[in-house]
């Protein structure tokens, strides 16, 4: 079985002084979140799409989905967690409560604010999560990455050719992710903010899926302007 988890847990503090979390802002005529869900909704590989959002926004999210998507039976809205991994674990808990899982079952986790995801990226995530157990969507880093531990001086300048920028989806075999996550100490859980990191720090292979420069994350007000203008360009 294949599940999609749309992570809409963030409250968008980087989005400036807006009242709504950023995933509810309009891109074109519709909320960003709806655009993102649609990309998974039309892909019939998924048994169920789980949308995770802050508790106080669950009803609103449900309303939006039923307003914009005709047949929303395969879309479930549940509460996210405090951290990204808590949110993913909530999705897994929901899946386990409702399905009998086997080793091969996978979850494709995606940021709700990356609506420009393409068909190929989704397909490759499914394929490589099945083949390798875990995969992460990346693009080669166009900027040089600088490492600084104190924010004042450079510690190192890694070779740019080895550097990639992480996008989403990140996709995993569900039971494997759960197994690795459950043995982490609370300290490690705080540190391993990224689910792919849980795999790689356990010496598990994480395959790189080629992302797209256009698969942008709408984080800052500027990003929304960019997203709206690329959508309207003719």
């Amino acid at each position: 079985m294949i599940f999609a988890a749309i992570l809409a847990g963030g409250i968008g503090t980087r989005m400036g002084n807006v009242e709504k979390p950023k995933q509810f802002l309009l891109l074109g005529d519709k909320p960003i979140l709806i655009h993102t869900i649609e990309k998974f909704y039309i892909n019939n590989a998924f048994n169920e799409i789980i949308v995770l959002c802050p508790k106080q926004w669950i009803s609103h999210t449900k309303d939006l989905i039923s307003r914009y998507i005709d047949d929303s039976n395969c879309i479930k809205v549940i509460e996210g967690g405090n951290l990204r991994n808590d949110t993913i674990m909530n999705a897994i808990r929901y899946i386990e409560d409702n399905y009998e899982l086997s080793e091969e079952d996978i979850i494709v986790t995606h940021d709700s604010v990356r609506p420009f995801i393409t068909h190929r990226i989704i397909e490759e995530n499914i394929k490589y999560a099945i083949d390798y157990g875990a995969c992460d969507t990346v693009i080669p880093s166009s900027d040089t990455i600088i490492e600084s531990k104190d924010g004042k001086f450079i510690n190192s300048v890694p070779n740019r050719q080895n550097m990639y920028q992480g996008q989403t989806p990140q996709s995993f075999r569900i039971l494997k992710l759960k197994e690795l996550y459950n043995v982490l100490s609370n300290e490690e859980k705080e540190l391993l903010t990224d689910a792919a990191k849980i795999f790689s720090s356990n010496d598990e292979q994480v395959f790189l899926v080629e992302g797209e420069v256009s698969n942008i994350k709408i984080t800052y007000p500027h990003d929304l302007k960019v997203a709206n203008s690329i959508l309207k360009e003719k």
Binding site: S214, I230, L231
Partner: peptide
């Protein structure tokens, strides 16, 4: 690469 909003999927096949 350009992006278009498909206005309506009613009575359409993707």
């Amino acid at each position: 690469e350009t992006y278009d909003e498909v206005p309506d999927l009613k009575n359409q096949v993707i």
